[in-house]
């Protein structure tokens, strides 16, 4: 079947089997391997992308369902060599270790901040409940999202915890 969609602001058209999952379409047809496959069973969220602005597990959507949709993957976040504030937050606050969950985590954070510009720590933790990380224990991921939220509101991000005296002491 023929499908057409916009991926990272670029129009694409391809012939796909109905059973092709969106994640395979992105990775194998378009070479956009930033979107990861973790569990393949709809739980881990490593494959999260935005479909028409909403976070979606691309391993649980058929490419044919995305016909006509607007897709944003982690590759589409940075523009003109400038990292997206969420990417910058993960960099500045050490929001990753192995990095496997990171693209999905970042896309979920982008989706969350789109709907809630000033989330509490609790709202951030619930907002990424569909994304699993096996390395970080989530702590620095939450700090990275707080950093991005502040930046996107035009505020000064809270200082890193390792600059807090009580942490050093």
């Amino acid at each position: 079947m023929q499908v057409s969609m916009t991926v990272n602001r670029r129009a694409v058209t391809a012939d796909v089997e109905p059973r092709m999952l969106l994640v395979h379409f992105l990775r194998e047809e378009l070479g956009l391997t930033g979107t990861h496959i973790g569990c393949e069973t709809s739980y881990c969220g490593a494959c999260t992308v935005l479909v028409d602005g909403r976070t979606t597990k691309s391993c649980t959507m058929l490419a044919v369902q995305a016909d006509g949709a607007e897709i944003l993957t982690v590759e589409g976040l940075a523009q003109d060599g400038q990292l997206h504030p969420v990417q910058e937050g993960f960099w500045e606050r050490h929001g990753l270790q192995c990095g496997y969950c990171t693209p999905g985590m970042i896309m979920s954070a982008v989706g969350l901040l789109q709907e809630n510009a000033n989330p509490t720590e609790d709202e951030i933790r619930h907002g990424i409940e569909g994304n699993l990380c096996r390395c970080t224990g989530y702590h620095n991921i939450v700090r990275a999202i707080e950093y991005a939220a502040a930046k996107m509101r035009g505020e000064e991000p809270p200082p890193p915890e390792w600059e807090h005296e009580e942490v050093i002491a």
Binding site: R54, T55, T56, K57, G111, G130
Partner: peptide, 9 residues
């Protein structure tokens, strides 16, 4: 029901 991504679809 499920998580954010599941509730979106």
């Amino acid at each position: 029901t499920g998580d954010v991504q599941v509730r979106n679809r």
